Amino acid sequence: MPSVEEDRTIVAAAKADPDAQPLSPRQLKEMVPIQARRGRPTSENKKLLVSVRYSPEVVAYFKSTGDGWQARMDGVLLKYVARQSRGA
């Protein structure tokens, strides 16, 4: 640990550096531990985790469309539900 005098010197040098200014009280308050920010951001459109079995051909087709295939499959199902709800 630095002595009191060394600490004062370090703090003075840091405050003199325009690229290393102390955080404001607001910035300090907004800080959260890194573990709290891990994973995907929470979505307003919550989805349910379910276990479903699809035909191999259906899964193969959607997988062949590349990354995001699950979201595309969800989109197709949402369109189907919308059409059925309208009675079309």
Results as ranks from 00 to 15, higher is better:
residue 1 M to F: 12
residue 1 M to D: 15
residue 1 M to W: 08
residue 2 P to C: 10
residue 3 S to T: 12
residue 3 S to N: 12
residue 4 V to E: 13
residue 4 V to R: 13
residue 8 R to D: 11
residue 12 A to I: 00
residue 13 A to R: 15
residue 13 A to T: 15
residue 14 A to C: 10
residue 14 A to R: 13
residue 14 A to Y: 14
residue 15 K to N: 13
residue 16 A to H: 15
residue 17 D to H: 02
residue 18 P to V: 06
residue 20 A to F: 04
residue 23 L to N: 11
residue 24 S to Y: 01
residue 24 S to A: 01
residue 25 P to I: 14
residue 25 P to K: 09
residue 26 R to M: 15
residue 27 Q to T: 03
residue 28 L to Y: 10
residue 28 L to F: 07
residue 29 K to E: 13
residue 31 M to N: 14
residue 32 V to C: 10
residue 32 V to E: 15
residue 33 P to K: 13
residue 34 I to P: 11
residue 34 I to S: 14
residue 36 A to H: 13
residue 37 R to Q: 15
residue 38 R to M: 07
residue 39 G to N: 07
residue 41 P to S: 09
residue 41 P to T: 03
residue 42 T to M: 12
residue 42 T to Y: 12
residue 42 T to A: 12
residue 44 E to D: 10
residue 44 E to H: 10
residue 45 N to P: 05
residue 46 K to E: 04
residue 47 K to T: 09
residue 48 L to D: 04
residue 49 L to Q: 07
residue 50 V to R: 10
residue 50 V to N: 08
residue 50 V to S: 11
residue 52 V to S: 06
residue 52 V to A: 06
residue 52 V to R: 07
residue 55 S to T: 09
residue 55 S to F: 07
residue 56 P to H: 02
residue 58 V to S: 08
residue 60 A to Y: 01
residue 60 A to V: 01
residue 61 Y to N: 03
residue 62 F to T: 02
residue 65 T to M: 04
residue 67 D to G: 07
residue 69 W to H: 07
residue 70 Q to R: 08
residue 74 D to F: 01
residue 76 V to D: 03
residue 76 V to G: 03
residue 77 L to M: 03
residue 77 L to N: 06
residue 77 L to S: 02
residue 77 L to R: 06
residue 78 L to N: 09
residue 78 L to P: 02
residue 79 K to F: 02
residue 79 K to Q: 04
residue 81 V to P: 03
residue 81 V to W: 05
residue 81 V to I: 05
residue 83 R to D: 02
residue 83 R to G: 02
residue 84 Q to V: 09
residue 84 Q to N: 07
residue 84 Q to K: 03
residue 85 S to G: 06
residue 88 A to E: 11
residue 88 A to R: 02
residue 88 A to G: 08
